[in-house]
Computed example of a mutant assay.
Amino acid sequence: MTNLAEAQRELEDARREKTELDDLIEGLEQQVLDGNEAQAARELGEKFGLQRLAELRQERAEKRVQDAEIARRAQLLKDAQEDATEALTAVSADVVAGAYVAALAAVTELVEACRTREAAILEHARALRSAGDTQLLVATGDARRIIDVNGERFEAGRFEAGLMLGRVAGAAMATAGRSASGSQFQRPEGLHPVEQLLAAAAGEDASALEVNWSSTQFAARMVAFAQAATKAEAVA
């Protein structure tokens, strides 16, 4: 298969040769017109033959350029098809389904943990209030129900399943960037206790959390840490 650049150079050479012969023949013809027929006639016979040969070479070169362009387009198409096949196979429905199954199991576990926590807070807040507790129940002066146990604050609604799912999705989408539709998933405001624990485990600077927690860089670090921790746990 002829290289396109090589064929184009060959065509340029053939056209140049043809042009030079055309100019030379034109000059010889002018000599005949000027009355110098004897010398010019002898050269014209030879040059006409060379001119025809140059025309044939140019036609051959043009055909080779055409063939090379067709081959180049065919190769571009083949490469594009192979690239598309490889890229799309890597994100086939089966591949996404595998990630979906894993996410569904993890999300279900998270939802169950959140619901269990919320139910426990409500149940024990009622029981402590009925028993007259003044140590574990936090007096809020409003409808909030908060219990302090072993240094941890248990506030009803703080770990509600929908809220936690929003934080998970927000961190993941912030790391991935903009979605296909162009919109960006909005992360919930305020640093959450779970995120504080995750950041501490990841070695984040505690003094900078309130400033950095909402950045995509922070989200990316948290996602990377979670992925590494999950992988290490699976290996163990």
Rank of each mutant, 00 (worst) to 15 (best):
L44I: 12
E43T: 10
A38E: 10
R72Q: 08
G49D: 14
A68H: 01
R64V: 13
Q58R: 15
E46M: 14
R52M: 08
Q81F: 10
A54D: 01
A74P: 01
R42D: 09
A61P: 05
Q58V: 10
K47S: 04
K63M: 15
L44E: 01
R57I: 04
G45T: 15
A80M: 07
D34V: 04
A61S: 05
Q58C: 14
G45Q: 13
R52E: 11
L44G: 01
A40Y: 03
E82D: 14
L77T: 06
R60H: 06
V65T: 04
A54T: 04
A68D: 00
G49N: 12
A71G: 02
E46N: 10
L76E: 13
A74V: 05
A68C: 02
G45P: 02
R42L: 13
D79S: 04
D67H: 06
A54P: 01
I70C: 06
A40I: 01
G35D: 05
G35A: 09
A54M: 03
E46C: 03
A41P: 00
Q75P: 00
G45H: 11
E69Y: 07
R52V: 09
D34F: 10
R72T: 03
G49F: 12
L76S: 05
E82W: 11
R52F: 07
G45Y: 11
L44A: 03
K47D: 01
R42H: 09
L77K: 07
K63C: 06
L50V: 05
F48N: 11
L77R: 08
E43I: 13
R73S: 08
Q51C: 05
K63Y: 12
L44H: 04
D83T: 11
N36T: 04
A54K: 00
K63A: 15
K47T: 03
K47R: 14
G35K: 06
F48E: 10
E59D: 15
L53H: 07
G49S: 12
L44W: 03
R64L: 14
Q39L: 10
A68F: 05
R57G: 03
R52A: 12
D34Y: 07
K47Q: 09
V65Y: 01
R60T: 12
K78G: 01
E46V: 15
R57Q: 11
K47P: 00
L56Q: 13
L76F: 12
V65P: 00
Q66F: 13
R64H: 09
G45K: 13
A61R: 02
Q39E: 14
K78P: 00
R72W: 02
Q66V: 07
R52C: 02
A40Q: 01
L56H: 11
R73K: 13
R72N: 02
Q39M: 08
A80V: 04
R72H: 06
R64D: 11
R60K: 10
R60V: 08
R73P: 00
L53P: 01
A61N: 06
E82G: 02
L53Y: 09
R52Q: 13
D79N: 08
A41C: 04
K47C: 03
L76C: 04
